[in-house]
Computed example of a mutant assay.
Amino acid sequence: MHKARGWAVRNTPWLVLAGALGLTQPALAGDYQESPQLAEFVAEMTRDYGFAGEQLTGLFADVERKQAIIDAISRPAEKVKPWKDYRPIFITDARINKGVEFWKQHEATLARAEAEYGVAPQVIVAIIGVETSYGGNTGSYRVMDALSTLAFDYPPRAPFFRKELREFLMLAREEQVDPLGLKGSYAGAMGLPQFMPSSFRAYAVDFDNDGHINIWTNPVDAIGSVASYFKRHGWQPGQPVVSAASVEGAQAEQGLTVGLDPVKNAAELRDLGWTSADPLSDELPVTAFRLEGAEGDEYWLGLPNFFVITRYNRSVMYAMAVNQLAELMVDARGNN
């Protein structure tokens, strides 16, 4: 078994860690030193989670508010790209070939992850490929800066990011790492698989058994952690992700799923004019969707494993990109 958090690490006093990081020295005032929100947060972490208030205050003295983060998260959402434009961003020869190289390089680890968690290697590799191009772009913001900025200066989602900041500090204490030394995306997503701190603490694993979980620079832990996440969300080993469909009749539009959660089963969709390219049991819950493809509308049925991928990122097109990248890597490996 691979632990998510060892007892010794979990119970390392924050005071010891802070001393090791030099945080017990008097610090210059940081961007949040006078913030009532920070004072309240420090009080909560001291009262409820056993942190030392003086050391937390010293830590936050080095935290910087990043206007670029506020700008990025506040930017009006771009019009959602159609599938014909979204797909070429992630499905490229370069990403396929680099994925095959990553797969070969970590073949033994991926095989072990499949044996333990039931998640096929190509799916794990595709997640890491779509998220960070196999570790090539894991983010350049200090996670402490990102989460603090959003927790204290972005009211629309402050409760969410305050929770993630709390999780991140507990993560740093458990893993005995410098919280100021870890980098991620502007939203605080971390490492090769881009886990948020709460996902790290819930699903990340020490897959190489070295006593620490490192998803930033250790592909072994990243691979195990993605597999762990998928298993915990109900991945079904050996089962397909989607099935192509054709539609006919006036009622076909009624079959389209609003959102991601399946609300109809395969039999109900057949009654509405949907025909699957694959045999599906009548009772199977499916997500029915239409994509604007390069050659016209495409109709698809998302199966239970498709729904699992959308737990990683709540987007139909994201899940399709992951699945198609995975399939194309299998084909590329077979042709090499």
Results as ranks from 00 to 15, higher is better:
21 L>N: 11
22 G>R: 04
22 G>Y: 04
22 G>I: 08
29 A>T: 13
29 A>K: 11
29 A>Y: 02
30 G>D: 06
31 D>R: 04
32 Y>F: 15
34 E>V: 03
36 P>C: 02
37 Q>C: 00
40 E>H: 05
40 E>F: 00
45 M>I: 06
45 M>P: 01
47 R>D: 15
49 Y>S: 05
51 F>Y: 12
51 F>K: 09
52 A>T: 14
52 A>C: 11
53 G>H: 07
57 T>G: 03
58 G>I: 05
60 F>N: 03
62 D>S: 12
62 D>I: 00
62 D>C: 00
63 V>N: 08
63 V>G: 03
63 V>D: 12
70 I>L: 14
70 I>T: 10
71 D>V: 04
71 D>K: 10
72 A>C: 02
72 A>Y: 03
75 R>H: 13
75 R>K: 15
77 A>I: 13
77 A>Y: 12
77 A>S: 15
80 V>Q: 13
81 K>R: 15
81 K>W: 09
82 P>C: 09
82 P>H: 09
88 P>L: 07
88 P>C: 05
90 F>S: 07
90 F>T: 05
91 I>N: 11
91 I>K: 10
92 T>G: 04
93 D>V: 07
93 D>E: 14
93 D>R: 11
93 D>T: 13
95 R>W: 07
98 K>R: 13
101 E>N: 02
104 K>R: 08
106 H>D: 01
